[in-house]
Design a protein around this nucleic acid. Structure first.
Length: 266
DNA sequence: ATGGTGGCCCAGCCA
């Protein structure tokens, strides 16, 4: 079973890229973030035509928005609104995979603004509060008990080699010590396995996002690993492969994030 | 130290 996560930065604008990716990679499930449209405007029929007949959509006008499109039947589990912000940042389904159910959570964690100080920047405070609530919810609801996968744009690069320069980014939102600490607490709350790092050792650079604000993203290669695939302990033995589609950053009118796919042998 | 780009849709806001 192949599960892809991709921050698409407007699904309607980039539907041709989604179609190309699905035709060439054929994951069983794709989780999208930053769809930036209402549910009624989500390109459901295009996805159904490609065999992704089972959809769970949590959208809003203009901002945020997440969706899961699956070839396998899904049952809607949940749409959480942490911090009661009224943002569409989570959708979860149960998938019948290999004869037993698997729960799949798709997240878009707040980016947090520019200033990494929660006393002056409400967006940074929101990001930290969101992570706290997520952590408590994972514990309380036992989200990682059994076969569970949590994917998405978590907007934090936790490891030294998840960014192009650890030193240069220590005070940059996405790699500050307090964010990394909160993310690690969330990891610990579910005893999640960082599946990408099971395939690429922590001492190797690994990115999923490159800023639009670079004259040549590939040459400067100042990336960050903001997108993640976490699996519960029950699925650790099933991890079978990882693909980070770096080439997607070079496509015409690209998202600033690339698709990340994890394969599970269920 | 600064400013760089791109999305929502045409004004700022958000990333």
């Amino acid at each position: 079973m192949k599960i892809t996560t991709w921050n698409i930065n407007s699904v309607r604008l980039r539907m041709p890229l989604v179609v190309h990716f699905l035709k060439t990679n054929a994951p069983d499930v794709i989780c999208l973030q930053e769809t930036k449209c209402r549910d009624a405007e989500f390109p459901s029929s295009d996805l159904r035509a490609l065999g992704y007949e089972h959809l769970a959509v949590n959208g809003q006008k203009g901002y945020h928005g997440v969706a899961i499109a699956s070839k396998l039947p899904v049952r809607l589990l949940d749409k959480q609104d942490f911090c009661d912000a009224g943002h569409a940042r989570h959708v979860a389904v149960e998938i019948d995979a290999g004869g037993a159910p698997l729960s799949l959570h798709n997240f878009y964690v707040p980016a947090g603004g520019d200033e990494p100080d929660e006393t002056v920047n409400p967006k940074f405070a929101h990001k930290l509060g969101f992570l706290d609530e997520m952590t408590e919810w994972i514990k309380r609801e036992r989200i990682a008990a059994g076969r569970s996968v949590l994917v998405g744009d978590l907007n934090i690069a936790p490891l030294e080699h998840d960014v192009w320069s650890h030193k240069a980014l220590l005070k940059v939102v996405s790699h500050t010590p307090i964010e990394v600490e909160k993310l690690n607490k969330m990891f610990e709350a579910g005893e999640w396995i960082d599946s990408m790092r099971r395939f690429v050792p922590p001492q190797e650079k690994l990115y999923t996002w490159w800023s639009y604000r670079a004259s040549d993203w590939a040459a400067s290669d100042r990336g960050r690993r903001l997108d993640h695939v976490l699996v519960s302990q029950a699925l650790g033995g099933a991890l079978a492969g990882l693909q980070v589609a770096r080439e997607a950053r070079g496509w015409e009118r690209p998202s600033d994030h690339v698709p990340v796919t994890v394969e599970l042998s269920l």
